[in-house]
Design a binder for these strands. Structure first.
Lengths: 187, 187
DNA sequence: GATATTCCTAACCGTTTGGTTAGTTTTATT
DNA sequence: AATAAAACTAACCAAACGGTTAGGAATATC
């Protein structure tokens, strides 16, 4: 009996995600979301409940995309070298959005207050833990280096990822390649 | 003839700077500034003209503080080792604020839109250029490594600074020390 | 002590914020 | 064709936004 929905929820979330990615959570208003998603406020709240709801779905959408890269990394047999490749792809992926706006996940981690919304924090924490585990798994394929533990190396790589994301918003691709080279010079 | 001002502009800017540092530019409202600075909106606009005016003065105030570290680095004769020490002090300085909120300058560089307020962008650009120059000067004191140019090394260090700032907002001091060690393992 | 000058309080401006809701349009079913 | 259920438009809400201003309170000079 109902009237058919004139928009696809996955499609409009995709657009919302792009907007959040470009502007960050705080700066993006519901009115901007209306414009970008092409549906009006009523539909936004009917489908996602709140601005936070839209944001959470946007993060999930972003993660789904990033998972393609992470799964490829997990399945690779090359050890550290494949993480280097992952970083390059990660940067390419970040630019795929528009101009260098870094990684939505790390941007959000930097943006939200330490004592902020629990749900968002949880999603971020889970994601970072998952990437760290993948890094550790990949690192285990190489022979041990210099008595450094896998955990230490994985930690360093996670922090480097934050650095890459942040730096890519300000520096050009050649400088970023220089950065990647140096990260892996003695991991 | 006039009534004496009941607040010290330098003192209230110091407080404003702390607030911007903690919350970022966008999130900080004039009402929050009123509360933190301990003066009311009228006085804020009388002294600094606008929210942007307060922010610009806050950046200058922050730079003045950071300059202590940078000047010490510039005067040091230890080459790369003194930059490492600078990074440690830089992180300590960042935490001096409250909890890890990174560096106000790099936070701002990440926050503002690429096509945003020219004045703020200029101040940021000038600061980063100055630090890069200091890095290059210090690097020149060491013997050349691996055929990498001073510029490449300085670039890498600037990018690392962004990484440090971003990562310190999310990771604990031990992890950060691990990060610093790795940065300098083969600069 | 009058006066001129500055400061401060507090109310106010129009706009935008996240969020809601009444009322209309559409449409699958009967 | 009547109807019931959902989707839409658009006006609306109170609160908060950045910014302004009138008018009373204070004070250094004369």
């Amino acid at each position: 009996m109902p009237r058919t929905k004139q928009y696809n929820e996955q499609e409009v979330i995709e657009k919302a995600m792009q907007l959040f990615w470009r502007n960050g959570y705080q700066t993006t208003s519901v009115q901007m979301l209306e414009k970008e998603m092409g549906i009006n406020k009523f539909s936004i709240y009917a489908s996602f409940g709140s601005k936070d709801g839209v944001f959470l779905e946007s993060i999930k959408c972003y993660e789904k995309r990033l998972n393609t890269l992470i799964n490829r990394l997990k399945d690779s047999g090359n050890g550290v070298e494949s993480i280097k490749e992952y970083f390059r792809e990660f940067l390419l992926f970040s630019k795929g959005n528009k101009f260098g706006k870094g990684c939505l996940i790390t941007n959000t981690a930097n943006e939200i207050d330490q004592d902020a919304d629990t749900k968002i924090k949880m999603v971020l924490g889970d994601f970072i833990d998952r990437v760290r585990t993948v890094f550790a798994t990949v690192l285990a394929k190489d022979k041990n280096k210099d008595g450094k533990t896998i955990e230490q190396q994985a930690d360093f790589l996670i922090i480097s990822m934050f650095g890459l994301s942040s730096a890519s918003r300000v520096f050009n691709p050649e400088q970023m390649e220089n950065y990647i080279e140096n990260i892996f010079r003695n991991i």
